[in-house]
Nucleic acid binder design. Structure first.
Lengths: 362, 362
DNA sequence: TTTAAACATGTGTCCGAAAACATTTTTGTA
DNA sequence: TACAAAAATGTTTTCGGACACATGTTTAAA
């Protein structure tokens, strides 16, 4: 095996000292044009590739990163991105990467802004953020832009002028709607009806929910020969309440040929609670996210499919992209859509175990 | 942020020199029991975690790894694990990991053995192998055991006494059969029939195919209320031949209520060719592997589901496990089943793009 | 022509761990 | 008790690159 080319090899071949080669590599200036040209030629000729290991060791500085996401203690979902972040650190900490977590309280915008302020004054090299609150997030990112603080979005996409974010890592909401439609379509007959059900507040302000709806509808529009009726509904507070029961009962009565329901968020387990009491003929269900309540229903064959948004991987790739950018100084892709995994009782264990493998995906 | 604990920090706290600490860490001996005990205590107390970067730099040796798999030029499938291996190297080469590829010609056992002999005399630190030929592979691995050469299996599982392999990375064949059954089950009605179709030679010597069959059958056994008829068949040479057409035609006539077919390998596209001519009523199809011919049929909605065995990831994790073992000296899991991805027209792009993200999963 | 600022280039130390090498302490035996 | 062998412990160099610092050379103003 050939010995790897070092700086000193270049220096010798170019007849200069390693200091001069270093100045060329790091564009520190103070090198005469001719010498610079010669060194660059030798570098190309010998195909110099820096030793990242030695470089990281010598650099001997640490990178400060802030991670801004909801508090996992309030909403267990967020434990998953957090665990992905921690896994990525397991490896990147060797390179001096450090993450401070800022967990904002759900539905507490004031607290969100406090976190933002702390980050802005914290001398960070990069921020990884789940920009849940539209207006507040934009404001924060504007301030980041002014400060020159680099930010990486995950989970929720925010349109930014000039694509000033470093990258977005998350799902393609539109396509997840298409996928849900196809799954239900596979399990129903010509002429059946399917329902798209939002169980959230403020649906028509949430772009990602609208995108899911669009995708779902468009699938059936593009498959007109299936002759499927689409029902669009929403219910804001899907607790196990009389009101919710009444609502569902009403829907079932109104649409006797209803064979499938697509719930656009992770709240499908609320629907299962109510449906299983009513004990109607089997209605096929597609929802999102491997949270504990949903997993129970999936294993009991009450939910047919859960579309997985890879939350662990989102956190993991978030940190890894920051690493690639800061440490390895590589170009990274602006938009990184993660696979939409189709999870069923029969393959769910792999997606839960996937975390195990990930620790080594250095 | 707390400074990371170094060897010198332990040495100072334990009142010895770093040389002594080093001897304890590397079990080089020549340390008195009391001092050793004290150092180990301090290490635990300070939660010492070695700096892999500095360690790799100082070690300054390279690891020789052999990768033994079929020639991708004969069977394009094997390009995928190979590309996973190369991606893993993109990062691990910084740590001195080097891979030599040994590609055996498909169905040429003599050539396989030549490769094995070369590896055995090549002074390798580890072997990553896809043990396709049962007998020959066992023989080779026996010789590895004698030599003390560590081997890592992927793609195909081989039972070894004492679990002498370092790890197996691949799919769970049985479970993939269960998954296929559930997918078809979702799309058919009570009383319909489904077929399991092997399009390979020597099926009853191929444990993984039998395992798929078992899983498929057991799913329906455990769902008796569905009342699904299972038909087991096989055809060895699924070219676009009159014989194959006749065979398929015969099956369709014999089982008029046939609504789904599960092909146990990647050869489902051969079935599609024949079926699409016959133009019968829609029969739902589930097969394996994102190879080019299958992708075409999936996109044309002629195949409903492809179960993906993550071939790229298999190669990737193969190298990463070797890295964890050799370089980081970590314990690794003996059996690592990769997710069984359910791939459809609507999410196939992510699985093809997944390779892009992977480059950074250092 | 002198001289110092500006520029070009060279040298040395450091990062943390590994391992060769050097020194000190203990042990056993004459 | 003397002394060499063995065991225990300490010191130094090395890995490749980053960067501070030192030295040498050119340029321009006095």
């Amino acid at each position: 095996m050939k010995k790897r080319i070092r700086i000193i090899d270049i220096a010798e071949k170019a007849g200069v000292s390693k200091g001069t080669v270093d100045r060329v590599i790091h564009k520190r200036g103070h090198v005469s044009p001719e010498v610079k040209k010669r060194i660059l030629e030798v570098m190309k000729e010998l195909d110099y590739r820096p030793n990242v290991i030695a470089s990281a060791l010598a650099y001997n500085k640490s990178w400060k990163i802030a991670a801004l996401l909801p508090n996992p203690e309030n909403d267990a979902f967020w434990m998953q991105p957090k665990s992905g972040i921690l896994k990525a650190l397991n490896f990147t900490s060797d390179y001096g990467m450090n993450v401070d977590f800022y967990h904002f309280q759900d539905a507490n915008k004031q607290h969100f802004q406090n976190c933002c302020d702390q980050i802005l004054s914290g001398a960070y090299d990069a921020v990884l953020i789940a920009p849940l609150y539209y207006k507040e997030s934009h404001q924060f990112l504007n301030e980041c832009d002014e400060l020159g603080l680099k930010y990486f979005l995950f989970n929720t996409f925010l349109e930014r002028t000039d694509l000033s974010f470093q990258c977005y890592i998350g799902q393609d909401s539109y396509q997840s709607g298409v996928l849900a439609a196809k799954l239900l379509d596979f399990g129903i007959e010509n002429g059946d009806a399917v329902m798209i059900l939002h169980l959230e507040k403020g649906v028509y302000n949430a772009k990602h929910l609208l995108a899911k709806e669009q995708g779902f509808q468009n699938y059936f529009i593009e498959h007109p020969n299936r002759n499927i009726q689409i029902i669009k509904t929403s219910f804001e507070e899907p607790k196990d309440s009389p009101a919710f029961r009444k609502f569902i009962n009403y829907q079932l009565k109104s649409y006797p040929n209803l064979k499938g329901i697509f719930v656009t968020t992770s709240r499908i387990h609320h629907l299962v609670n109510v449906l299983s009491d009513i004990h109607t003929k089997k209605i096929k269900l597609v929802g999102f996210d491997l949270i504990s309540n949903n997993l129970t229903d999936l294993r009991a064959e009450k939910i047919d499919f859960l579309i997985n948004q890879n939350p662990v991987k989102q956190g993991y790739l978030g940190i890894l992209n920051i690493f690639e950018h800061l440490v390895r100084k590589k170009e990274i892709a602006k938009i990184q859509h993660l696979p939409l995994d189709v999870v069923m009782q029969e393959n769910v264990s792999y997606y839960l175990e996937a975390d195990q493998h990930m620790h080594m995906m250095i």
